[in-house]
Computed example of a mutant assay.
Amino acid sequence: MVSADGILFPVLRQAFSVVRNIMTPKFLLTSLLVLMTTICFSQTNFDVRRKKIKPLFIDTAVEKTFIYDLPNAVLYFKQSDISDFITNVKNIEATPNYSFKNFTDTLKSNTKTIRVKDIFYSYGEVERDSILRHERISADMQELNEEFHLIGNDLIFSGHVMVYSKGNKKFIFKPYIAKKQTSSLGQQDLIFYLPNGKIFYQILIAFGE
């Protein structure tokens, strides 16, 4: 991580600035790994200018689901799709030092519905602290939140998700849009928009200067 003269390598220095709103050293390390893995090792090519993505319909009465609560949307995933991602040999080879242990253990527990509120990636420090003061979010759920971001990137980009719009108060089955956005410093993000134009998710795909 550090060069011979003690200076942090530029890409990691940039990564630290991206995840400056942190709670714990563990979250910092997890966030850095998620960012670096997404950019360098993901099996998915996120570098697209614009992409229409059709969401799934998931029969929640039949399927075991993982529910991811975001500020503008609630995302539903099949637990089987998450398990397939974790056990995919290419993903294992791409992330040899990263373990989805908490997710693996939770999926093995045979829970019908797992629900996690994204407090780490969708909120700043002040909002996150307020949520934790007013809501009971167990340590296990926080660990699942940390682990899911890397999984979610691929599943959302590939359309393996059912989307509920909080603004429209209904499930959305029209395509949602992914658009690449480049900042003045060169950082590139893939922004995901609901049909009503609201942003519901984003992926960092390239560090800036």
Rank of each mutant, 00 (worst) to 15 (best):
M1A: 10
S3A: 14
S3Y: 08
G6Y: 12
I7N: 15
L8A: 13
F9S: 11
P10E: 12
R13P: 00
Q14W: 02
Q14L: 03
V18G: 05
V19P: 00
V19S: 15
V19G: 08
R20Y: 11
I22A: 11
I22N: 12
I22D: 12
T24I: 09
P25M: 07
F27N: 11
L32P: 04
L33P: 00
V34T: 15
V34M: 10
T38P: 07
T38L: 09
T38Q: 14
C40M: 12
C40R: 14
F41W: 06
S42Q: 08
Q43M: 11
T44K: 13
F46P: 03
D47E: 14
V48G: 11
V48H: 08
R50A: 13
K51W: 12
K51C: 07
I53H: 12
I53L: 07
K54G: 06
P55C: 14
L56H: 06
D59R: 13
D59W: 06
T60V: 10
E63W: 00
K64I: 02
F66P: 04
D69F: 07
D69T: 10
L70W: 01
V74L: 09
L75F: 06
F77P: 04
I82C: 04
S83C: 03
S83Q: 14
D84W: 01
F85D: 00
N91W: 02
N91H: 09
N91R: 08
N91I: 01
I92A: 07
A94E: 02
S99I: 02
K101Q: 10
F103E: 00
S109V: 01
N110R: 12
N110M: 10
K112Y: 05
T113A: 10
T113C: 07
I114P: 03
D118L: 08
D118N: 15
I119E: 02
F120I: 06
Y121H: 14
Y123P: 00
Y123F: 14
V126S: 09
V126M: 07
V126L: 05
E127T: 12
E127H: 02
R128S: 04
I131C: 04
L132W: 06
E135I: 07
R136G: 06
I137G: 03
A139L: 11
A139W: 03
A139I: 07
A139F: 10
A139K: 13
E147F: 11
F148E: 06
L150Y: 15
L150Q: 09
L150S: 09
G152L: 05
G152H: 02
G152F: 09
N153L: 03
L155M: 05
G159F: 06
G159S: 07
H160N: 14
M162W: 06
M162T: 10
M162E: 12
G167A: 11
G167Q: 07
K169Q: 15
K169S: 15
K170A: 12
I172N: 03
F173V: 04
Y176D: 00
I177R: 09
I177G: 04
I177D: 01
A178I: 00
K179Y: 00
K179E: 15
K180T: 01
Q181R: 13
T182L: 02
S183A: 14
Q187V: 00
Q188F: 02
D189H: 05
L190Q: 05
L190Y: 02
I191H: 04
I191N: 03
I191K: 11
F192A: 01
N196H: 06
G197K: 03
K198N: 14
K198L: 08
Y201A: 02
Y201I: 00
Q202P: 00
I205M: 05
F207N: 05
G208E: 03
E209P: 01
